[in-house]
Design a protein around this nucleic acid. Structure first.
Length: 512
RNA sequence: GCCCCGUUCGUCUAGUUGGCCUAGGACGCAAGAUUUUCAUUCUUGAAAUCAGGGGUUCGAAUCCCCUACGGGGUACCA
């Protein structure tokens, strides 16, 4: 289709460091990464910090750490370096002016001296008349700019250092055609577009100018970004034309948005906290307010699962395979298979994915994470022991954070006994039978799962006791509830002394 | 308001050149099986008149038009 295979594929992820990275941004980065790797191309990280008023300390470091955790690696950019640097737009500040000047000289742009306050009041006036103000070919003649003012006036203003911005001069009656790799042809008429500011009065370019200049200089071949950029894409296309860079203009692909799970609209920070899933890859503490937003990493998600979940929110391979490693995604990914409509985040499916990944994850790695949780609870156990516990209970967990709920009895005695199980299983003669089992266990020297299992089963069969009943009571004594892995795994793990103690304690505590 | 994008089971989606779609899969849900428990796993099931209405066609979820609804944009923010 539109993809020019003769050109080296170079794509970028270009966040602005205004806070933690939104999960939608992570997906955009992931798609860029997959596309680059599939085509043996380069994936770069560029920091778009042209708005100095919105700078948030720590955001850049956060972004780099998040991608590191996810296994989405950059070939070039901030924190890595490369031939096309610097990769932070604030560090590129000196180079933008000449491009603004070039457009000024060629007539594609003009000086505008209207102050923000003036424009504000004009907007309000229009609003009062239920009209919409736009700085465009119809209004620019009546505003204060180098198109409406005389040459002398303009020169004087500039000479007196009156603040100005540089605006793009959209030509009249021009159809602008975008060939979007996801949406196909999108047409827009220049008369409806406004003369966007390219260069601000503080000497910084706006996103529009900076991204075109940088993409060109960095030889970006494909721009894969969110749908919110589609409306300003005609401007970008026109800028390539104005600079005479049309023949190397990147191809565009505008991704559908990530929507909130209930209702409609863009997924926002608040939705996550409200609905119980993270909106950010890593936990984030707002430096100003101290507010904490949860992250996937801290919530016990496995990075490979997050990648898989995100990959499938807006893309699918067209096969019935659901589980994809990063390498498989690189091979299977294609821009043509990205859907056009927004996708809602589904917490249940995310859980299912994480469960799947937890099962294939290495037990020792999970154990290390679980150890942190245990330490938090003042519980010290050997990593070996924790690893064994993980192997026994992880199939009933979706997250590392579920582990405690499913395995606390491996580390401490039950503090209560499930009332329902008592009602259903605890009979009058139960204490008596349990006492016999205590004696039995006490006499066992080989306290392995297999041996204790064999001996207790033999006893129950010999005495013709109701298996379900006594086993459940035994479990209740050891676990405190009707859950958990094989009973004799528990018995052998906690050991003879502890097992006997727990059974005795249960006999005393449970009276019917 | 204006401009742009979108609309298949509750959710993610398959359905690319119109016929094999009595619309497939996954999550979730329900039932059953396995299990001494919980969970896992397995089997089965319910679940979309393809937003609605007009065309085009022998034939449309697939092409065209209109309407509705949803979303995005409309800053000296990205």
């Amino acid at each position: 289709m539109g993809i020019n295979m003769n050109r080296r594929v170079r794509v970028r992820f270009a966040p602005s460091p205004t806070g933690p990275l939104h999960i939608g941004g992570v997906r955009t980065a992931l798609y860029n990464y997959l596309f680059a790797k599939q085509n043996n191309g380069d994936f770069l990280l560029r920091i778009e910090d042209t708005d100095q008023t919105r700078f948030v300390p720590g955001a850049e470091e956060y972004i780099i750490e998040a991608f590191k955790w996810l296994g989405i690696n950059f070939d070039e950019g901030v924190g890595i370096g490369g031939e096309y640097g610097p990769y932070r737009q604030s560090d590129r500040k000196p180079m933008y002016k000449q491009y603004a000047d070039e457009l000024l000289n060629s007539g594609w742009a003009y000086y505008a001296f209207d102050t923000p306050e003036e424009l504000d009041s004009i907007r309000k006036q229009y609003e009062a008349e239920k009209k919409n103000f736009q700085y465009d070919c119809n209004t620019r003649g009546a505003l204060r700019n180098s198109l409406s003012l005389s040459k002398e006036e303009v020169e004087e203003l500039l000479h007196n250092n009156v603040p100005y911005v540089v605006r793009f001069k959209f030509p009249k009656d021009t159809e602008i055609l975008i060939n979007d790799l996801i949406r196909g042809e999108v047409k827009m008429n220049s008369n409806l577009l406004d003369d966007k500011v390219l260069y601000k009065s503080d000497g910084m370019p706006t996103y529009h100018l900076a991204n075109i200049v940088d993409d060109h200089l960095m030889e970006i071949s494909h721009v894969i970004r969110g749908e919110e950029w589609l409306p300003s894409c005609p401007l970008h296309v026109m800028l390539y034309e104005a600079f005479g860079w049309k023949d190397t203009m990147p191809e565009f692909a505008h991704l559908p948005l990530l929507l909130k799970p209930d209702g409609n609209g863009k997924l926002s920070k608040r939705d996550g906290d409200r609905l119980g899933f993270p909106v950010f890859p890593l936990q984030w503490t707002d430096p100003k307010t101290g507010d904490i937003s949860s992250g996937y990493r801290e919530s016990g998600y496995i990075p490979e699962a997050v990648v898989n979940i995100l990959a499938f929110l807006g893309w699918n391979p067209g096969t019935e395979q659901e589980i994809f490693s990063m390498q498989e995604l690189v091979e299977a990914f294609s821009i043509e298979r990205i859907s056009k409509s927004g996708a809602k985040f589904d917490l249940e499916k995310a859980k299912w994915y994480n469960h799947k990944y937890l099962q294939i994850a290495s037990n020792i790695e999970i154990a290390k994470q679980f150890d942190l949780i245990l330490k938090d609870k003042q519980i010290n156990a050997s990593l070996d022991y924790i690893e064994k516990v993980v192997s026994l209970v992880k199939e009933r967990c979706s997250f590392v954070s579920d582990l405690w709920e499913q395995s606390s009895f491996f580390f401490e005695k039950p503090s209560s006994y499930d009332e329902k199980i008592i009602q259903k299983r605890w009979k009058e003669d139960t204490p008596e039978v349990l006492k016999e089992i205590i004696g039995l266990l006490d006499s066992v020297s080989d306290f392995t799962t297999e041996n204790t299992d064999k001996i207790v089963h033999a006893f129950i069969e010999e005495r013709q006791i109701n298996m379900g009943q006594i086993m459940n009571c035994l479990r209740l004594s050891l676990v405190g509830a009707g859950k958990g892995p094989n009973l004799f795994d528990i018995v052998s793990m906690i050991g003879k002394e502890e097992s006997i103690e727990r059974i005795n304690k249960a006999i005393e505590a449970i009276k019917k």
